[in-house]
Design a binder for these strands. Structure first.
Length: 323
DNA sequence: AAAAATGACAACCGCGCGAGA
DNA sequence: ATCTCGCGCGGTTGTCATTTT
């Protein structure tokens, strides 16, 4: 339906909808200048405009109010603020907007919505059904660790525009990340030793062989002690979210992000999903009752995940048929 | 160059709340 | 006490512009 090209007229043609004209804006501004931003309904009752009071208020609040940052993109700082406040308050856009001078609840809402769409698309295109062909060559075959996540809803990756370049420039700080143009499996290999994963059994059950990791890897590669990989310290030069993510890797509650996926249910040494393998016990950490002060939901896990842009640099994994 | 995908933005709708009659 | 009305908020939809394929 072409909702906005047509000039909708409800109530026997007395209510105008659709885009505002400059003349209407002028009338509205004049009214506000005279009476203040109130009595919206009187604008129509006085015959000044064929708009509902609601529509007038919305127009004023979102477009005509002074000091609005119309047409100005959200800065990185504003993005971060929204992300933080959304985590704190939920979808209380009006409340969040009060922390952002010049921004309206609609702005914040739209920003968040766009972000959600973007991130949902990233996850969707990163996790094609088995056998499906990626739409673009830039995409990757999602690692089994994400592909098999049960009932994981659209992700809420925390991702700032500025982060991609930072990740690109900094992500090779891990000795386990291929220090080349292509960053391979950053979230996975950054925390595991290459060769410690066995994909033979099932695409959704990666077998973790601790024996392969430390010793053989260190012998072959760098003489770096294993604990170094777990003693992750926040890098304060990184964006806040990355710091937080890294910090929380050391939080026991962060390991078993999907709660129900205890090691006992899955079998020792089998890694159904990535996050469990972050645990010191290889994913068998089962939070006891009352241990969920920091309940980690799938969404919050996604929030804590590193920026998805880093996946842009992943080499495609072999398809299951190639395993 | 054309088509498709995506992002950004504007506006409407429904619901709930609070004040006043 | 309750009814009505105005307002504010969150969700949703549609359009246009830009980017990507």
């Amino acid at each position: 339906m072409d909702g906005r090209k047509r000039m909708l007229c409800d109530d026997m043609g007395t209510i105008k909808k659709g885009p505002w004209k400059a003349e209407e804006d002028e009338v509205l501004i004049n009214h506000v200048n005279k009476y203040g931003p109130r009595d919206w309904s009187s604008i129509r009752s006085k015959g000044l405009l064929q708009r509902t009071g609601k529509s007038c208020r919305l127009r004023w609040v979102n477009k005509l109010r002074p000091n609005l940052k119309n047409g100005v993109k959200f800065s990185a700082e504003e993005e971060r603020t929204v992300i933080d406040l959304q985590a704190q308050f939920g979808n209380k856009w009006a409340k969040i907007a009060t922390y952002l001078p010049g921004r309206t609840d609609n702005d914040v809402k739209n920003f968040w919505s766009s972000r959600q769409k973007r991130l949902a698309r990233i996850l969707q295109t990163s996790a094609p059904p088995c056998g499906s062909k990626p739409r673009k060559n830039k995409e990757i075959q999602v690692p089994p660790l994400l592909d098999g996540v049960p009932s994981l809803e659209a992700p809420i990756f925390s991702m700032l525009r500025e982060e991609e370049s930072i990740i690109k420039s900094r992500s090779c700080s891990s000795p386990y990340i291929d220090d080349s143009e292509t960053i391979k499996m950053v979230p996975l290999q950054g925390l595991m030793y290459p060769g410690s994963l066995n994909f033979e059994h099932s695409p959704h059950q990666i077998e973790f062989n601790p024996a392969v990791d430390k010793q053989s890897y260190e012998e072959q590669q760098l003489q770096l002690p294993f604990p170094q990989i777990l003693q992750l310290q926040p890098d304060y030069s990184l964006p806040l979210e990355n710091q937080d993510f890294i910090t929380r890797l050391g939080d026991p509650n962060f390991y078993d992000v999907f709660g129900q996926c205890s090691g006992s249910e899955l079998g020792t040494g089998q890694l159904p999903i990535l996050p469990s393998c972050f645990g010191p016990d290889g994913g068998s950490h089962t939070p006891s009752q009352g241990e969920n002060q920091n309940i980690v939901t799938p969404d919050s896990f996604i929030d804590d995940f590193p920026p998805m842009d880093i996946f842009d640099h992943l080499d495609p994994l072999p398809s299951p048929s190639q395993w």
